[in-house]
Amino acid sequence: MTSTAAGPAYRAPRRLGGGGRRPDNSRQIATRERSRTLRATAFLAPAVAVIVAFVFVPAIVALRLSFTDASGFGEASWIGLDNYATVFTDPATVRAIANTVLYAAMYGPLVIAVGLGAALLLNRRDVPLRGFFRTIIFLPFVISMAVASLAWAFLLDPNLGLIPYWLGGLGIRMGDVFASTTWALPAVTAVAIWKNFGYFMVIFLAGLQGIPRYLYEAAILDGAGAWRRFRAVTLPGLRATMTFVIVFAIIGAFQAFDQIYIMTQGGPDRATETIVYRIYTDGFRDFRMGFASALSYVLLAITLLLGLIQLRVGTKRERDLE
């Protein structure tokens, strides 16, 4: 297969033409191709118009700001790449990048694993009270981060919370996880996984519906055990789903903000400051809109790199499937 990102324009015609057609068909092929492009354009136009107006254009505005000393108000002057240089020299920002990478490394794999695990359990037909479990397990996703934070802060408060109180009754002393420079980031990650795994679970559940049952039946006839069925049938069947899930987990991980904004405000001692949290405080609180925009584009570069690697692997697999 040819590469995806580098030369997509050359791939399509070859596929569409089916390779070795006779030359007298070329005009017909071109006409058909033009008609396809037209139809695709018509289907894409409404959504793309919205996205261009409210995402793409603002993104260009932000890109322009990243080369200025904009404060968010009044005039700004062009300062070239200074903001980008600051991103990699400002200790607080470097720390935020490191925190974000650490967060992503914990959050990404775990949220996918937990989501897939829950989906596999709930997809079984022999589970009693399946509807009940599906509802209960999905609850954290339905509630807002504000409510989730309120609940967890109540439960884990070292002085007044139920969990430390009950553990204390068992003789276990539990410190304040959100105030510990070591544990705050893992704790925030855990809450985010708790909150979001339901999202991935639902996508996996829907994806699991797409795997033809007869494949499992064939595998059983071949004497495949549960693990082999998982490896040979479930995982390949979830390929397209997996591409989406992984790209989404990467984006979610690198854009971690809500739970930090609500629960720790980046503390203690910057232990939970992530890239987006810094973008937010620099841009909105400290009049550094230009710098915040530059940091956003550094983040974009990081996510894009990881996302495109995944997407390229994923779409190649998809094509192999076809």
Binding site: I51, Q255, G283, S296
Partner: peptide, 10 residues
């Protein structure tokens, strides 16, 4: 997809 990766806050 690339557009999706620009953080909303920016």
């Amino acid at each position: 997809i690339a557009i999706m990766m620009v953080p909303f806050q920016a």
